[in-house]
């Protein structure tokens, strides 16, 4: 028994759970796009793609994903660089801080942001107490609230791959660049960054893909004009009972995700599969 038992069964239970709990339902939802109503064919896709509402929600989704990717990319890369340059104690502290969001529930984190950002929240209380503003700044239900919430939650996904690529960096290369006449700044941009940008790229792909499917954070923090496709899909099912349209939208989002993963596959492979 014991470890030999687990060795023998390997990862199969995990894969089975994933198949039953994830792939199967996802396949059913997507299959709905051509089977609901019976004999639908590609009509659901034609309908959805011609629908200005879908287009608007899709644009919201992409816009938020791009903004979040840019900020998590820049902040995450330099946070990882700070970890790379820090001593062991500070590095452990920074790593813990970076991982903290992953250990807390998504729902709790999104609610926490609403406590911070609402009119009676900490930020407005501080601003009013300091006399910076007279009236609370409306930050809830804005694009700002959605992106800041998502950036905080998604930061680990750029920090960790970037840090991984930095750990693999041969620090002698910086010494070599300096001896060859490069200032610290040029050594960073011409040697360090090009050698570690693969980690940044892998992180950006992850963040972008994850952003495309975000649901809870935009619902809790965003206004009506900041809602992503996921919200529209839910509405199709819960209020319109239009499983066909929901299936077609899901299929389109899934295709976009797979496309992104294919584009970023080289970077992901280098960071996660070596």
């Amino acid at each position: 028994m014991g470890s030999r038992f687990f060795q023998a069964i390997g990862v199969w239970p995990l894969l089975a759970a994933l198949a039953i709990l994830f792939f199967l339902p996802a396949a059913v939802i997507i299959a709905n796009s051509v089977t609901e109503p019976p004999g639908a064919g590609l009509s659901n896709f034609r309908r959805v793609l011609a629908d200005p509402t879908f287009f608007r929600f899709a644009m919201n989704t992409v816009k938020i994903a791009i903004i979040v990717s840019i900020f998590t990319g820049v902040i995450g890369y330099f946070y990882a660089y700070a970890m790379y340059r820090a001593g062991p104690a500070l590095r452990a502290f920074l790593l813990t801080c970076a991982l903290l969001p992953l250990w807390t529930s998504l729902l709790v984190r999104s609610f926490a942001w609403s406590v911070i950002l609402r009119d009676t929240g900490i930020v407005n209380w501080l601003l009013i107490s300091a006399g910076v503003v007279d009236h609370p700044i409306g930050m809830m239900r804005t694009l700002f609230a959605v992106t800041i919430g998502m950036i905080q939650i998604l930061l680990p996904f750029t920090i960790l791959p970037a840090y991984t690529s930095m750990r693999r960096f041969d620090s002698n290369l910086i010494a070599a660049a300096r001896s060859l006449g490069a200032s610290p700044r040029r050594a960073f941009w011409q040697v360090f960054f090009p050698s570690t940008q693969v980690g940044l790229a892998a992180g950006l792909v992850l963040v972008f893909v994850l952003s495309l499917g975000y649901y809870i954070t935009p619902v809790l923090l965003g206004g009506p004009s900041d809602q992503p496709v996921a919200v529209l899909i839910t509405a199709q099912i819960t209020s319109q009972l239009d499983w066909g349209a929901a299936g077609a939208m899901s299929a389109i989002v899934t295709a976009a995700v797979l496309l992104m993963l294919a584009v970023g596959w080289n970077a992901l492979k280098k960071i996660f599969l070596v």
Binding site: D170, N172, L173, A175, A176, A177, S179, V191, P194, S195
Partner: peptide
């Protein structure tokens, strides 16, 4: 400077 592990970019 020539390094042991070559240190080519």
């Amino acid at each position: 400077v020539v390094f042991q592990n070559y240190s080519l970019f």
